[in-house]
Design a binder for these strands. Structure first.
Length: 98
DNA sequence: AGGGTGACCCGCT
DNA sequence: CAGCGGGCCACCC
């Protein structure tokens, strides 16, 4: 059973353009509350059917974060979209590790 | 109703 | 860079 909250998270994740990433915190901000970041991860984790785009959601410190199907897979998907990942860190001007 | 969990975030040391 | 601690939230016993 998917909750209304999970639905909103899913919608935001789906709207992330290919080759681009958003942090859990940014997703939370889009939902209205910065502090939802933790709950966002929780939601994505439960939504196993949506594993297709949830890989575009990463941590604010530049690390990829987790993935229900394994983060190795997550990194592969991101690389496949042209996202640069160096030593486990995503290269993006929006993230700390740039 | 109350406590535990987790794909988090921020600040400080 | 690596820990630690506190805060926040939805969800599941």
């Amino acid at each position: 059973m998917i909750t209304d909250f999970q639905k909103r998270v899913f919608i935001v994740a789906r709207n992330i353009p290919r080759g681009q990433v958003l942090t859990y915190g940014e997703v939370a901000r889009r939902l209205g509350d910065k502090n939802l970041a933790r709950a966002v991860g929780n939601a994505l984790n439960k939504n196993r059917d949506s594993k297709v785009f949830c890989h575009r959601v990463v941590r604010s410190d530049g690390r990829v974060g987790g993935f229900n199907s394994g983060m190795a897979r997550k990194i592969k998907l991101l690389r496949g979209e042209g996202v640069k990942i160096k030593k486990g860190r995503i290269i993006s001007p929006f993230l700390k590790g740039d």
